[in-house]
Amino acid sequence: MIEFTNVSKTYPGGVKAIDDVSLTIEHGEFVVLLGPSGCGKTTLLRMVNQLEDITEGSIAVEGKNIHDLNKIDMRREIGYVIQSNGLFPNMTIEENVMVVPNLLGWSKEKRAERFDYLMDLIGMPPENYRGSFPHELSGGQQQRIGVARALAADPPVMLMDEPFGALDPIIRSRIQEEFMDIQKKLKKTILFVSHDIDEAIKLADKIVLLKDGEIQQFDRPAELLNRPVNDFVSEFVGEDSVLKSLNLYQVKDLQATLDLPAVEGSPDGKVFHPHDSLRHVLAHLLHPSRQYVYVEGEDGTTNGPVSVEHIEAFVREITA
């Protein structure tokens, strides 16, 4: 758990980088700090592990005020991943991943065991990479190692500063999905900086949208997209916010609002699974040759038909 209480940072000369931020990230929650460059998102993140000073207010990690803790010790208990991966070129992959356990004085056996576990977790065979050096790896692999390093001492809290920002879109998307799977297993408390709304929507339990060091909106992604609280938020989420938000809803959400009859015989359109995204369904329906789709019911039935009008009605409801 991370708690920001009335946190402000003022640079000498009076420029306010962070302006009275109060925010609570619950245990196991994935929160993305989102905003245009210069909004203070990275500064806010780096305040947590005391790489940036706080002018006013306080931050507590796992219930303890960070000012009462030893800087070096507290940093070792927080996972930290940065954009350019920050791997040490002079160390092997094993040394890189095990750098914090090493600082903490873990035994060699315990380290080797942990290394194998982490490499399996990120999907890289430990034996193939143990003695390799960072420059021998691709950008995506280096970033995976960066994540493994942050997880090495099993910290309850992770800070991630645009960790996937430098990767090409295809690799980025794949690593995001892998990371989501890891997070499902490990349930870390994560604070994640991004400037990419699509990434934030995909990953976050909640999004903090910042502008000029102030929180504009702190909400679940769907709420942020469909119920922006001010002009800045609605502009930032973009004109296609409704379309984006359909990514966050599944066929079963639509089913819950409709009472679709079961279909006798074979349906005359594509049948969607309850976990397919509504955006997917809409994209399918927009083709002029298709009027209806059907959805799989809970008890093996096929229900329908669903048309564009149903999705429109659903959107009216979520944006109301």
Binding site: Y80, S84, F88, V100
Partner: peptide
């Protein structure tokens, strides 16, 4: 970046 990472993970 390497310096920042070293600092951020708790090296003296």
């Amino acid at each position: 970046n390497i310096r920042d990472a070293a600092k951020g993970i708790g090296m003296t």
